[in-house]
Write a protein that binds this DNA or RNA. Structure first.
Lengths: 139, 139, 139, 139
DNA sequence: GTGGTCTAGACCACG
DNA sequence: GTGGTCTAGACCACA
């Protein structure tokens, strides 16, 4: 239950509750998250508060909004693409800019995997479907 | 200038404007971002709209809010920590949950660098100060 | 062309386009307005949006819906009826209530011409076929 | 009460109910009309239906929407402006185009009072604050 | 003052 | 009925 007097902001409590449901599998991959109106009534808060909770989960890459269909648990698919690493390559993670998100077709809340090759060239890959790995012959 | 008509939501336009200022160095690392009230007056919008713009930049890891001091351009410091990779290790990127953020002391908008070792153990590292590198003798 | 971004709501843009066609005579009095389905495809919007555009034009008295025949440009016929004014008479314009619309057989989007005689009696006349005129011998 | 099975569309029934309240003075000039959400709950319909009812009243010039404050009964103020009529002048009523509404600063649902002078010149006046009258010396 | 949170309401586009 | 955007204003905690 949401406690309006608690230390934790109500929108965070609602986000916590939804996150638990997702993590526990109660809301499985692809499932529909209750509508803003349902959540509003359920927790007795304003729609704005509900939306902030959803924003939190978007920022964590846990849900995906498909207007005007609804909000859905993101398919946390396994990496389907493997980028081979070679000696001296470095790997980092950072958030993309909106422009980069468009270019690489990644959704909000999805970080980039950035590979800087030993020769200085830089590659960015969508973090939700890419893994980097020392190639079979990697050495 | 902000165009209240236009394809792009006003809060996104304001975020674009601030992002440009940061990227161009006009607002250097550590600089104070204008206060919500200043931005509100400058662009002729409501405070709510300004806050959404700031939220966007937080989500991109570009700024950091230090209430009640103000909002500041994040120090996009270089990685100070390097995690060695060995043959068979895999690297991914994803957003942390709030709990993980607390544990590893990372701020909003900062992704995790996740290293899955060849033996199956998993390590997570803050994306804003860690890089993974295949060791010089990588093998 | 309809611009889904833009200051102006799409349904208003479609209404503008049809209004222009009517005003320019491209769609003459009595002509059939393209069907909702045709407009929907032409502008790439939902039928709801098309219907809102038609609603705007109904409110302006420019078109008339004759289900299930179609929607037609209203005959902006010249006033066929002239109400004589005498000294002290006052004339106003206002929208009728639905009941008054029924009584006087006027369609949606047609205002009333209200004549208050010098002796206090009030007459209402359909605005689309009535004009008031001070008699040539006006007195 | 609203009767979903009645001949009359529910949104018209709701509009009727509000119109009665306005006409009877139960909702006096300038009063706040219940919010869409209140009306929705009161009548057990969807918000869309409520909005259509409000649209009807806007079209009749009975209410005025002032976002984001609410919807209010229009001040059906008495005419404050009197246009003198001279011999041979004709008066008509029609709805303005949006452009004309902007120019003359009139709200949705307010018709125009159109005066065609004997010499052929045409004047338009906002119907909610203008009356035409044979001038004192009119003859 | 600063940001943090919340409310109640509005308009829009799509189905 | 769903989400997207926006408004105007409120109270709070912090320093």
């Amino acid at each position: 239950m949401i406690d309006p007097s608690a230390d934790r902001a109500q929108y965070r409590q609602i986000a916590d509750s939804l996150r638990d449901a997702i993590m526990s599998g109660q809301l499985p991959d692809g499932a529909r998250v209750p509508s803003e109106e349902q959540l509003r009534q359920e927790h007795g808060v304003s729609r704005t508060t509900v939306r902030k909770a959803i924003d939190v989960l978007k920022g964590e890459g846990l849900v995906e909004v498909r207007a005007p269909r609804g909000t859905f648990v993101r398919n946390n698919q396994q990496p389907v693409q493997t980028v081979p690493l070679r000696r001296g390559d470095r790997v980092r993670a950072r958030m993309p800019s909106p422009e980069e998100r468009r270019e690489h077709d990644v959704r909000e809340g999805v970080p980039f995997l950035v590979v800087t090759r030993a020769d200085g060239t830089v590659e960015v890959h969508p973090g939700d479907r890419t893994q980097a790995q020392q190639g079979p012959t990697g050495r």
